[in-house]
Lab assay of single mutants.
Amino acid sequence: TYTFKVDNKDQAKKAAKWAKKLGLSFQIEKHGDTFKITVQ
């Protein structure tokens, strides 16, 4: 499981695209202005 934080929606979208490309499941949680992405 890999967790990282991004500062904006664009970065969150890029991370989601990357995870989908690799066939991984992911969750994006919004914490105020940051997004926490968990990829597994």
Score class of each variant (00 low, 15 high):
T38S: 06
T34M: 13
K14L: 10
D33P: 08
K36E: 12
W18Y: 05
Y2A: 03
Q40A: 12
V39I: 14
V6K: 01
K36F: 15
F35N: 01
K9H: 09
T3V: 12
K30R: 12
F35K: 00
D10S: 14
L22W: 09
Q11S: 09
I37F: 08
K20W: 08
I37R: 00
H31G: 04
T1D: 07
Q11R: 07
V6M: 05
A16G: 06
N8L: 04
T1F: 11
W18V: 04
T3R: 05
I28D: 00
I37S: 00
A15Y: 15
K20F: 08
K14I: 09
D10F: 14
G32C: 06
F4I: 06
N8V: 02
G23D: 03
Q11K: 11
E29G: 03
Q27F: 13
A15T: 06
K20G: 04
K21A: 11
Q11H: 08
K30W: 05
K5H: 15
K17N: 09
K9E: 13
K9G: 06
D7E: 11
D33H: 08
D33A: 09
V6S: 03
A12I: 07
G23Q: 04
G32P: 02
T3Q: 07
Y2N: 03
K13Q: 10
S25I: 11
S25C: 10
Q27M: 12
I28V: 09
S25H: 10
W18A: 03
Y2G: 02
F4W: 11
A16T: 06
G23C: 05
L22M: 12
Q11F: 06
K30F: 06
A19D: 00
L22G: 02
F4L: 04
H31P: 01
D33R: 08
E29R: 08
I28A: 04
K13C: 15
S25D: 09
F26P: 02
Q40C: 14
A19F: 14
K21W: 09
F35S: 01
K21R: 12
K17A: 13
W18I: 05
L22K: 11
L24G: 01
V6A: 05
A19H: 02
T38F: 05
Q11W: 06
F4T: 02
Q40E: 09
D33L: 08
A19R: 01
F26Y: 10
K5S: 15
S25A: 10
D33K: 10
K14T: 06
A15G: 02
K36I: 15
E29C: 13
Q27W: 13
E29W: 07
I28Y: 04
T34G: 15
L22I: 05
V6G: 02
D10Y: 15
G32L: 05
Y2D: 02
K17Y: 10
F26N: 01
K5I: 15
A19Y: 10
L24M: 08
A15L: 14
F35G: 00
D10M: 13
K13G: 05
K21S: 11
A12Q: 02
I37H: 00
D33W: 05
L24E: 01
A19E: 01
L22H: 13
K30Y: 06
V39E: 00
T1N: 09
H31T: 13
V39T: 03
F4H: 02
K20H: 07
H31S: 12
D7C: 15
S25F: 10
T34P: 01
A15D: 00
K30H: 06
T38M: 06
N8K: 05
V6W: 04
K17S: 10
D10N: 13
G32A: 05
Q27C: 14
V6R: 02
K13A: 10
G32K: 06
Y2Q: 03
T34C: 14
D7L: 11
I28P: 00
I37Y: 02
Y2R: 07
D10P: 06
F4S: 01
K30P: 08
H31A: 11
K36M: 15
T1K: 12
A12Y: 04
N8H: 05
N8M: 03
A16N: 03
K13P: 01
K13D: 12
F4N: 01
L22C: 15
L24W: 07
W18P: 00
T34E: 11
L24Y: 10
A12R: 04
K17P: 01
